[in-house]
């Protein structure tokens, strides 16, 4: 896939020529069942520097969550075929055994989920669950671990943390539960935090609190974060870089301001145009017609072609080239960088 080549040749712009913390190359994930093979991720390549936030934006079925679960090795091994390279820090994820993986899960890579109720164990108190994780990875005493749990609850700004240590997950409100899950995830100071739509199920007034908190924590602790979301507004709030996924591929990548304000791929542009806001009242919304392709069938050419208003004959012939712009932005579209795309609507 051409995107790999382009990204591999990408000049490292950081002042220090540091190695990226996360390096994913040509990752493909296929779900195999007796009846069909679902190519959920088709050659995804990206890297992430320590202390950076990457937002993977995509709609359901775009492969964004699968990409992240592959990085954590959380996919069922007997039904999944993974190819490509994944490296986090010094660890080659692709080659790691399950027991080695267990050792770095929670300590170097942590994950938070959309629904904390399923990620937290209902029969243990919040304090016990945080202490448990701390003890498992740092081999300290229970008293030390409990003290650390209290610190962590303070860190995630849980009000009256002493009381909450003894609370069970169902006794907490949605926002507090999400904070507790973040505390569990941060308990061993991970280098990389994976976040799978952690604010989607929250109310608007709570979502903004959690987003602001995550951003602050990420900066205070200097950790890198990969944040999966379908909401462009969330990406605008929290990301340094964004990768837009469609049909298992990254179709556009770049700095958040570049991608959201000057999108180069018609899909990104369509997403922006179809996100509703108030000053569109009374007008027809420019919706992207149709629906995403069925990934159980082979796709020829650009997978967005059937829904693209700029489609031409060439789009169906071959995979689109990855066009690189001077600002580090990339788009997998034959029109990218030609400047013929209308500017994004100002929100």
């Amino acid at each position: 896939m051409p995107l790999d080549a382009a990204v591999m040749e990408r000049p490292v712009k950081a002042t220090v020529k540091a190695q990226p913390l996360v390096d994913v190359r040509d990752l493909s994930v296929k779900f195999v069942s007796r009846e069909s093979t679902n190519s959920a991720v088709n050659g995804v390549t990206f890297d992430l520097m320590a202390g950076e936030v990457l937002c993977i934006i995509g709609e359901s079925g775009s492969g964004k969550s699968v990409t992240m679960r592959a990085l954590m090795k959380l996919l069922p091994p007997n039904r999944t075929k993974i190819s490509g390279h994944m490296r986090v820090g010094a660890h080659d994820i692709t080659k790691m055994s399950e027991s080695d993986m267990r050792a770095i899960r929670g300590s170097q890579i942590s994950m938070i989920f959309q629904e904390p109720m399923t990620a937290l164990d209902p029969v243990y108190t919040i304090g016990d669950q945080i202490a448990e994780t701390v003890m498992r990875h740092e081999h300290c005493s229970r008293a030390e671990a409990t003290a650390r749990a209290l610190e962590l609850l303070q860190l995630v700004r849980v009000p009256s943390p002493e009381r909450r240590l003894k609370a069970y997950p169902h006794e907490l409100s949605g926002g507090l539960r999400q904070r507790a899950m973040i505390a569990v995830a941060l308990s061993c100071k991970p280098d990389l935090l994976l976040a799978d739509e952690p604010t989607t199920a929250l109310d608007a007034t709570v979502q903004i609190q959690v987003l602001v908190l995550l951003r602050k924590l990420q900066q205070e602790l200097g950790m890198a974060m990969i944040f999966v979301t379908h909401d462009l507004g969330v990406a605008a709030q929290i990301a340094d870089k964004v990768a837009v996924m469609y049909a298992g591929r990254i179709v556009e990548y770049g700095r958040v301001s570049d991608v959201l304000m000057h999108p180069q791929h018609p899909y990104t542009l369509g997403m922006l145009a179809s996100t509703v806001h108030g000053n569109m009242r009374g007008q027809e919304i420019e919706a992207i017609p149709g629906s995403p392709p069925d990934l159980r069938r082979p796709i020829q050419g650009c997978s967005f072609t059937p829904r693209c208003k700029f489609a031409v004959k060439d789009c169906l012939q071959a995979s689109p080239p990855v066009v690189q712009l001077d600002n580090g932005q990339y788009a997998a579209c034959i029109r990218a960088g030609k400047g013929a795309m209308p500017a994004a609507p100002q929100a």
Binding site: P159, A204, S257, M261
Partner: peptide, 27 residues
């Protein structure tokens, strides 16, 4: 007002630094 201020802008330059209200809706 708090509800409306919690909306997310599409412009990364207009990030919310301080949440408009704290806490969850009570039970």
């Amino acid at each position: 007002r708090a509800l409306l201020e919690s909306r997310l802008s599409m412009d990364p330059a207009q990030r919310v630094i301080e949440p408009p209200i704290s806490g969850d809706p009570p039970n």
